[in-house]
Simulated assay, not measured.
Amino acid sequence: MLELIGGDNISRSAVALTSGGRIAQIGFMKGSEIVLSAVPMMLKRAIIQGISGGHRRVFEVMNRVIDEHGIKPVIDKVYAFEDARAAFGKMVVRFKSEVGS
């Protein structure tokens, strides 16, 4: 689960988290303080992990290079939504049928 830390928002994420789940904290929503009961985290053996991204300027440069060079991801197989279980660990799950396919 991706989480913006701040206020009691993380409490709702902790309740929604599955057993053994992980909350990846990527930014701030209502300040930098966390308001959270430890009980849901302990009972679910959950993990809160901070992650960081690069600077926006670097992201924009990366996207410009991708566009200029026509870089496309390598996709081995596309799965229909109904086959999502078979797709776990794969690259793409199709949620809607493509026109003409």
Rank of each mutant, 00 (worst) to 15 (best):
I34M: 12
S19I: 09
I47L: 10
F88H: 09
N9R: 13
G31T: 13
E68L: 09
Y79N: 00
I5T: 07
M41N: 07
V61R: 13
A24F: 15
I47E: 15
M1G: 02
R85C: 01
R57A: 11
V78A: 14
Q49R: 12
I75R: 01
G21H: 06
R64P: 02
L4Y: 06
V93N: 02
G89Y: 05
M42H: 01
T18F: 05
G21V: 00
R12K: 11
L4W: 00
A46W: 01
I66A: 14
T18I: 10
G70I: 02
K90I: 04
M91A: 10
R64G: 09
G100M: 06
G6T: 04
F95I: 08
V99H: 10
I66L: 15
E3Q: 07
P40Y: 04
G7P: 02
S52A: 12
K72D: 08
E3R: 06
V74I: 08
E60F: 04
S32P: 10
D67Y: 00
D83P: 08
L36C: 03
A86Y: 00
S37I: 03
L36E: 07
A38Q: 14
A46K: 03
R45A: 12
E33G: 05
E98H: 08
Y79I: 01
F28M: 14
P73T: 05
F59G: 15
F81Y: 13
A86S: 10
I51Q: 12
K30C: 09
K90D: 15
G31D: 03
M41G: 01
R57N: 14
P73S: 06
M1L: 11
R85F: 03
A38M: 08
F59V: 14
S19K: 10
Y79R: 03
S19Q: 01
A80D: 02
A16P: 01
K96I: 10
M41D: 03
V78M: 11
F59T: 15
R12V: 01
G6F: 10
M29D: 09
V35Q: 09
L2W: 02
I23Y: 06
G50M: 02
G100P: 03
V65H: 14
G89R: 01
I71M: 12
F59M: 13
I48F: 02
S52I: 05
K96Q: 13
S13Y: 00
